[in-house]
Design a protein around this nucleic acid. Structure first.
Lengths: 415, 415
DNA sequence: AGGCTTTTTTTCGAGCCTCGAAAAAACACT
DNA sequence: AGTGTTTTTTCGAGGCTCGAAAAAAAGCCT
């Protein structure tokens, strides 16, 4: 709205943008008719007709005759437009603690192949870790059922800090290694454009597609796991930092000079609400005790014990809730309250966390309308991360490859 | 980049946007030639020529023949384009503690008239406060030198919380009154579109214009005064909350359950770094002591005493620095480090604040690159607020009134 | 069954807009 | 005065979107 700086709009941009709009409308709505697209985009019927004719002719969209057999309406029946699954494919790679998973997704968003692998990420040397990632992708690309030429994008997701341009993993809790330029590695290896995405950002992207009613313009996805991560969507757009990948909510300061965090600093939220912090507190260990990774099963057992009777376990969850509540309050002071999705293994223990969290947030400026702050939980983060990567890659193809079209006026295929 | 939702681009939007681009280029650059505009916007010379011809003919721009007499270059000399000062005017109203000031600004950004008034905002009843604001504006509008019809916009700035739509003051430290819809009041009174802007946001806007080198894409303006306020620019755009006007940095939680804040809560940054908090601490009063407004002269005296010798005064500033440092660290964890401008009376005491601030920020995740975090100080906030209001009103006129042009094809004036 | 109504989609000409190339303008230098 | 250089304007071509009208594809009714 304010300083639009940037570059003027040239004439060809117009078509590109409106093509992007049509593609995006189809991806969002499923099988909208031309009339529906005209309504949502505000463009005229003629324009939509012309653009969709082009897109169909280019093999990006298809007419889905097999619409609902209802047809209880008079008049010419609407013809649904759908994404042509064969127009392209994308590949997602999700690397998490001791686990690597790859999926091939068609242009319509359906998984067409996948492969998963257990490995020991914490101790693998650099070459081996990279090698495994490259190898699993290569196996999928060699699949005879797959037209390798149609794979237009690889989106890799990882827990940790990535750079702004989605090129490299800078730091991750799943490995002692740092600064691995996965995007460049995959790109040079396979000649397919690739990105390296932050896990929590991808969770947020996935939520936006899964439940656009609840997660539309402003919301927060928080990962409660070994570490505490956040994906933040503001005004409908994923918010990423100016240098790193996203908001490091887990390293906001809860208590200056407080408990020891895995990052080596003191008093971070994560040092109170991360799995290791809850464990440390429940075991009555010192706040200075070195953080250690706790298995999901152990965490579930801990939660069960906390539910059973009052004691140090319950108190540990209470303190986690307090840390999350005050920090969320500080965050809400900055961006105003928004719906929150709690994801990850400790989200399954949210019943133990919520009371203290709400009590804390009510003591903050951001908690003014604390009734309007609502939480949703999703214990399993991996499917979300994969979905997010898939949607991110697909929308890239939509916007950057198909919207510009044949372009460069190398001549249209047909008159 | 992600979900472009929204509406398609129609053909007439194209001209509107490119006109906006040209106007904005002229406002930013001063007296650019057509060639320079073509270069910065990326549009062709023909287009710039056509658009600027229209804008000149409509009286929005003028050719400034009286360019520099240098002309040491060969070739046809460039003709500078300038904003026509008479194209429109805007009015700024800044309401601060016991002080009301109004200015009339021409389209080129020059102050053409102003008026200031002392009043007792803390005790004035609602009708009187509103009445004074309306009256001072009326006096300026009655100025015979002013063509009232040319006043296109009123921008009012106030310390405190305003709503997202820039319509109303919700809460302010300068008056016990709440929820005054100043924008609507001025609009209905004078029939001129008006906005109610947050002071810190306007400071940020002003900084962006004053020093675009330093304050371009990402920066923070922090008001160190009675309260602690913040204006935040991210990716070149003013960041405002989803419900209220902006980030309430002053009410991030520094110490859960800590010192009493003016907002009634505990542990806010402001309860350690606001004028009253520094005073309270320097006077060795309890952290529960009721906040009171301290005059600027008293604060300057306090700072002088703190500089003179070590003691509770110096310690008070140290604690303020600590609170600001940890909170800035938390903020930087979310948005990554960015240049900071410290504004207001306590910015003049920043030498007392900075050491502890830097020490604290170095202990946070956001302070990783603490060397790249730089501070600038500006003790006087009022001129900044006024400048910001002026620029905000003027860019509104640029974008929303002049860019669309005569529009609605009511026929162009001349063939 | 055939004509009528309704709704969707396509076709077609008009009107803008931007662009590139060429022309015109305005100056410095010789 | 003529030449060279740089800026600005002019002009025709090509694209794009739009509105109106036509065409298409059903259901409804007699």
């Amino acid at each position: 709205m304010f300083q639009t700086m940037s570059v003027g709009i040239r004439h060809d941009d117009l078509r590109r943008r409106n093509r992007a709009m049509v593609i995006s409308a189809v991806r969002r709505a499923g099988q909208p008719s031309r009339t529906e697209i005209a309504a949502t985009t505000g463009l005229s019927h003629s324009t939509i007709s012309a653009i969709s004719a082009d897109l169909i002719q280019e093999g990006i969209l298809t007419e889905s005759k097999a619409s609902e057999p209802t047809a209880l309406k008079r008049g010419r029946p609407q013809i649904g437009l759908a994404l042509n699954p064969e127009a392209a494919a994308v590949l997602t790679v999700v690397l998490s603690l001791n686990f690597l998973s790859v999926a091939v997704i068609d242009y319509a968003g359906q998984v067409v192949a996948e492969e998963q692998l257990r490995l020991d990420t914490l101790v693998m040397p650099r070459d081996e870790l990279i090698g495994e990632c490259v190898a699993i992708v290569r196996r999928r690309l060699r699949d005879p059922d797959l037209d390798i030429g149609s794979v237009a994008r690889i989106a890799m997701g990882i827990q940790g800090i990535t750079d702004t341009h989605a090129r490299a993993m800078l730091w991750s809790p799943i490995t002692p290694l740092t600064d691995i330029p996965f995007a460049d590695i995959l790109e040079t290896e396979f000649g397919i454009p690739a990105t390296m995405e932050n896990d929590c950002n991808m969770m947020a992207v996935a939520l936006q597609w899964r439940d656009p009613e609840r997660y539309r313009d402003d919301f927060i996805a928080i990962l409660l796991s070994h570490g505490i991560g956040m994906g933040l969507v503001l005004k409908g757009t994923l918010f990423t930092g100016t240098h790193s990948s996203g908001g490091e909510f887990g390293h906001m300061i809860h208590r200056p000079g407080g408990a020891l965090c895995r990052c080596g600093r003191r008093g971070c939220v994560e040092a109170y609400a991360g799995n290791y912090a809850i464990w440390r507190s429940a075991m009555k260990m010192s706040e200075d005790a070195e953080p250690v990774d706790i298995g999901d099963a152990d965490m579930r057992a801990l939660a069960a014990k906390a539910r059973e009777k009052d004691g140090p376990e319950r108190e540990a969850y209470r303190r986690a809730g307090e840390a999350l509540g005050f920090s969320l309050g500080s965050l809400f002071a900055l961006i105003d309250p928004a719906p929150v999705a709690m994801v990850g293994v400790s989200a399954a223990a949210f019943d133990l966390i919520e009371p203290a969290l709400r009590e804390a947030i009510a003591q903050t400026a951001g908690g003014q309308h604390s009734t309007s702050i609502s939480f949703d939980t999703e214990p399993n983060e991996l499917p979300l991360i994969r979905e997010g990567c898939a949607m991110r890659a697909l929308t890239f193809v939509d916007q950057e490859i198909f919207a510009p079209g044949v372009q460069a006026r190398t001549g249209k295929h047909v008159a």
